[in-house]
Every structure is written in C-alpha cells, then in structure tokens.
Amino acid sequence: MTDSQFEKAVETYGDMIFRVAYSYLKNRPDAEDVMQETLLKLYQEDSRFESEEHRKRWLIRVAVNQCKSTLRSTWLRRTVPLEEQVDTPVFDRPEQSELFDQVMALPKNYRLVVYLYYYEGYQAREIAEILHRNLSTVQTWLMRARGRLQQSLKEAWSRNG
C-alpha cells in the first residue's frame, strides 16, 4: 500500500473503525488505539481485497478482534469505580444524547450489532458473516437490543416530557 493510499484509507475508514471500537469499548483512548492498530494492520496486509466492501468488512472484523484483545488485557479488573466517567460526545439535541446513553447501556455485543445494523446499514445475515457468528445469535441480540432500547427510550422520553 502506498503512502497516499494509506492516507486515503485513514480518511475513509478512520471514523468508521473508531465508532465500531467505541461501540464495543465505550472508551475513547482505547477506541483510538484500536483504530490505529487496525489501520496499521491494513497497511501491512499483503492480500488484495476484491472490493471496497470486502476491505470494509475486513476492517470491521479486525477492529472487533482488536477490541477483544484490549478487553482481555484488562480482564475483570473489578474495583470500585472512580468518579463517573465522562467520555461522551456533546450532542446537538437531548434525544440524541438519550439515545447514545441508552445504546451504551446495552451489553457490548448488543451495542455492536445495533451499530452495524442501524448505522452501517448491514442486515443481520451480513453482520453474522462479518462477526463469524450464527445468524440466529445475531438476530437474538438485535431483537433483545431493540426491546431494551424501546423500553428505556420510552421511559426516558416520557420522563423528560
């Protein structure tokens, strides 16, 4: 990969990889590390991609694996939390903030599939292929995530008037 091709890849996929990683890790520094490591793996990858879509799916898969490695290295560091962490973007509207908070309150696998489905526009079958999961598993995660989000958002929005 040439320097200019790599620069273009950073521009094209940097935010996408970051969002995938943030959805999984809920943490900006680690998500940026994952973005960088994933892009460096792309830089070092010799194999040719059949298409941009093939490259994108490869990047998502590598990013998710990188996220798992990050989590493994912090295996169950279970201590009393410090001050409530504030590491979220500032949103234009309250409903955006509420949606973000509720998505981030889901278990990580749910967050990931919800992101891939609603933001990246992948169907459940495609998500299952990308993540190497059973279709039924992905469908279950999506269904449970939707159910939880509907309930929690309904409560939050009625609470806020």
């Binding site: 790599f6 620069e7 950073v10 521009e11 940097g14 935010d15 990889i17 970051f18 969002r19 943030y22 900006r28 998500a31 940026e32 973005m35 960088q36 892009l39 460096l40 973007p89 500032v90 949103f91 234009d92 409903e95 955006q96 949606l99 973000f100 992101y115 609603y118 933001y119």
Partner: peptide
C-alpha cells in the same frame, strides 16, 4: 435517522489520525 445523526457525531480525534500516519 436519529441513530445516524447521533453516531455521526462520534469521531476519532485528528491527532489520533495524524499519529497513525
């Protein structure tokens, strides 16, 4: 649409992108 508007505000920092280069 709301989901897209919300998550599109989530960006890696320019510093992190420059750093990877």
């Amino acid at each position: 649409m709301l989901f897209h508007e919300t998550f599109s505000q989530l960006h890696a920092s320019d510093g992190a992108k420059q750093e990877v280069l």
